[in-house]
């Protein structure tokens, strides 16, 4: 994939992440520290977190097409880096009570669940698309079977 196109994809992901992080912080905060009050600076936090979370995704870029196995390995590396980034954010933030192990576990678990669910959703979407492609392929091959050399329309 061209790097420019890759960057455009990452920009789209950045905006999606900013929104999802704002929702996740709101839900986790409401569950563990619902009485907390913040200044206006907190509005920028989801954007900062999204930018930091975007960095690990760059490990999936390759000029050449990666094999499914190589991509799977890079995705696993991306998950590890994402966990690292999220825990770094949690420990660096004075507003997060990281002395409570359950808070750390919930953050790490949330990253894992969101990552797995997002990839599962994409896989299911691709599987449905592959099913349609196979159906069209079968029709195409039946149409031109035994007609090698004949020109397609």
């Amino acid at each position: 994939m061209e790097f420019k196109r890759f960057l455009v994809n990452k920009l789209t992901l950045f905006f999606a992440l900013s929104t999802l992080i704002a929702v996740a912080v709101s839900l986790i905060g409401s569950a563990f520290d619902s009485q907390a009050r913040f200044g206006y600076g907190v509005m920028l936090k989801p954007i900062e977190y999204a930018a930091l979370c975007l960095l690990p995704t760059f490990v999936t870029w390759s000029r050449r097409e990666l094999s499914p196995k190589a991509l799977l390995l890079r995705k696993a590396l991306m998950l590890l880096l994402l966990e690292g980034v999220m825990l770094f954010i949690a420990f660096a933030s004075p507003d997060m009570d990281t002395e409570r192990p359950e808070v750390v576990l919930v953050i790490a678990g949330s990253v894992l669940v969101v990552f797995v669910l997002a990839n599962l959703f994409l896989w299911l979407k691709d599987a449905a698309e592959a099913k349609n492609l196979n159906r069209d392929l079968e029709k195409f091959q039946k149409l031109y079977e035994g007609a090698d050399g004949e020109e397609a329309p």
């Binding site: 499914p68 991509l71 995705k75 994409l122 691709d126 196979n134 392929l137 090698d148």
Partner: peptide, 17 residues
């Protein structure tokens, strides 16, 4: 060669095998 493809499988990130 489309006539030589047996099946198409998903391969992550919107790609197929």
């Amino acid at each position: 060669n489309l006539m030589k493809i047996q099946a198409i499988q998903p391969a992550f990130n919107g790609r197929f095998t």
